[in-house]
């Protein structure tokens, strides 16, 4: 990990502690995310995966510790923070979190509208490109979220997250609730987008197939800290939870699928 130079680290979490009342979720957690990698965050339920994500994107304040994203401190007073940061990352929430009163096209245009000086026609075309990029048919642009299936909603959410060509993409369980074929396609999509747009991707996932297919490194949340490593390193780890996770029946099946 020390091999990565300072420039390459896009997210730096140091000494993060999160407490809810008397309950400690994270204690002195460190995590680095390098530019251009896909990092998967895994952990049992209640280990604070979503909380960690929310803290990184500034929706929640940690109890202690420091989080730097793209060189800016997100735990500092939001007043002094560069608003640009939000234009440089995209977030895909679990159920897509599309605005239900807007069509898909309008949903994708929302982040662009925040930058007031983009001409309407360019916005419209860009939205169309993004919708095509995530593999949705062009006629879905005029549909409302309630008319889309679960898988399409995720793709639409991804299109919105990509609207401003972010450097950094956060995904919260992108393949949860998708059938295996759709999930595999989604993995392919992320891989493809990452290559063509040079994204750094942070994804929370429970999908072992996704971990095998697209993650460069994996951060396992155990014992209130993050254990980060490449898949091979974690496979050799002897922490009981990590062993059970990767060597349980599902872990073995995913591994077999990868080598087959």
């Amino acid at each position: 990990m020390s091999a990565a130079s300072d420039d390459d680290i896009i997210i730096r979490v140091r000494g993060l502690t999160t407490r809810f009342g008397s309950q400690t979720i994270h204690e002195n957690l460190d995590l680095d995310v390098r530019r251009g990698e896909v990092i998967g965050i895994v952990g049992g339920s209640g280990t604070g995966k979503s909380v960690l994500l929310k803290e990184i994107i500034g929706l929640m304040q940690p109890t202690e510790g420091k989080i730097e994203v793209l060189g800016q401190d997100v735990t500092a007073d939001p007043e002094g923070r560069d608003i640009d940061l939000r234009q440089r990352w995209g977030v895909l929430f679990q159920e897509g979190a599309l605005f239900s009163s807007l069509t898909l096209q309008q949903n994708v245009e929302v982040p662009m509208r925040e930058l007031s000086d983009i001409p309407e026609s360019l916005m419209e075309e860009t939205a169309r490109v993004k919708i095509a990029m995530v593999g949705l048919p062009p006629d879905s642009a005029v549909k409302f979220p309630s008319e889309l299936s679960g898988g399409m909603k995720k793709r639409a959410g991804l299109a919105r997250a990509l609207a401003l060509d972010p450097e950094l993409l956060f995904l919260d369980e992108p393949t949860a609730g998708l059938d295996p074929i759709a999930a595999a396609k989604f993995d392919e999509l992320i891989k493809h987008l990452r290559e063509s747009l040079g994204l750094t991707v942070v994804m929370i996932t429970h999908d072992l197939d996704s971990l095998y297919a697209i993650c460069d490194r994996i951060a396992v949340l155990v014992d209130k800290r993050a254990k980060v490593g490449r898949l091979e390193e974690l496979l050799a780890d002897d922490h009981p939870w990590i062993r059970e996770y990767f060597h349980g029946p599902r872990g073995r099946a995913a591994a077999a699928g990868k080598t087959a």
Binding site: P138, A141, L197
Partner: peptide, 20 residues
Amino acid sequence: SAHRSLLEQVEQAQIPPPPR
């Protein structure tokens, strides 16, 4: 190659918007 693939995707997405 990344620029190429981006341009190709943009070109493919030039399907005219559904007629209103």
